[in-house]
Design a protein around this nucleic acid. Structure first.
Lengths: 156, 156
DNA sequence: GGTGAAAGAAAGATAGC
DNA sequence: GCTATCTTTCTTTCACC
């Protein structure tokens, strides 16, 4: 992977903002011909800069307005404990992100749910049943101040 | 906003997975004519179910492989302190998410950066300069176990 | 909700710098 | 090596049933 030039970074910035903009408009915005622009996008895709394209659904509109951050500590960090736990996490439908952490807890999860009742359901049916868990600490988000799917490109 | 039927939920699920799939293919997948399918998508957009469409950039590929979760406590939660702080957060380019929290700390931020050195830069130039901050506690993610942009629809 | 026609966009081939 | 233009093909979008 070689460096991204300013045009590449502009393309990434614009498509992060609107993943459905037409190639013609994109080409216009970065001062390229449509074919040259499309070739750059394909190259960025092929070189692994792009994980995909997604519709962003409004969590609240589809009944999951509440975000809960859950710190989880395992009984051990042996390979099998970790594998079993992570497998369970990945298959939990309402886990929107999971990170192996430094610090007190081993994992941090973000869960989207239908209020405290919705969280109780997830806690009872998923979290408390996950293998190897020794401690669960939940913190509710009272409000989302900001949420960005895009990564800021340098110098843009 | 009335209920979403099974077809609406299928549409949302498919477009969350691939925000650029053609309307023709989408219509085919949900057994509708292209025009009927497009009408549904437009209705979902107009009714606020959809926040937008985005290209998902690979954080690591563009030089920001590291996620840091930052708990921030303010000196007070007066309206002006909160407003000034949140304004600063929203304008910090590497903050990928910020939530007002219950629990010990007032805010939880996720930051994407170029390793510990990158985080030090953000800490020095942004976080430590944010107004009203009394305490900052940073936890580094060692690995991303999973990350989902999509919301799970019921019964699909 | 479906059909069909017109407008528009994408993808590939070709030619020029 | 790169890019622009042209043409075919597919898709979107609209009016109408």
């Amino acid at each position: 992977m070689n460096e991204l030039d300013i045009t590449d970074r502009k393309i990434l910035t614009l498509l992060q903002r609107d993943g459905r903009m037409s190639n013609a408009d994109l080409a216009d915005a970065v001062n390229l011909s449509p074919s040259a622009c499309l070739r750059r996008v394909k190259r960025l895709e092929d070189d692994g800069y792009i994980d995909g394209y997604a519709m962003l659904v409004n969590q609240a509109a589809v009944g999951k307005p509440t975000n809960v951050f859950v710190e989880i500590t395992l009984r051990s960090l042996s390979e099998e404990t970790v594998d079993a736990f992570e497998h369970a996490v990945i298959n939990c439908p309402d886990v929107r992100g999971c990170y192996l952490m430094s610090g007190d807890a081993d994992y941090l999860l973000r869960i989207a749910c239908a209020g405290p009742e919705g969280y109780e359901h997830i806690h009872r049916n998923y979290l408390s049943r996950m293998p190897g868990v020794s401690r669960i600490r939940s913190s509710f988000a009272l409000r989302t101040v900001c949420k960005k799917t895009g990564v800021k490109m340098a110098d843009i």
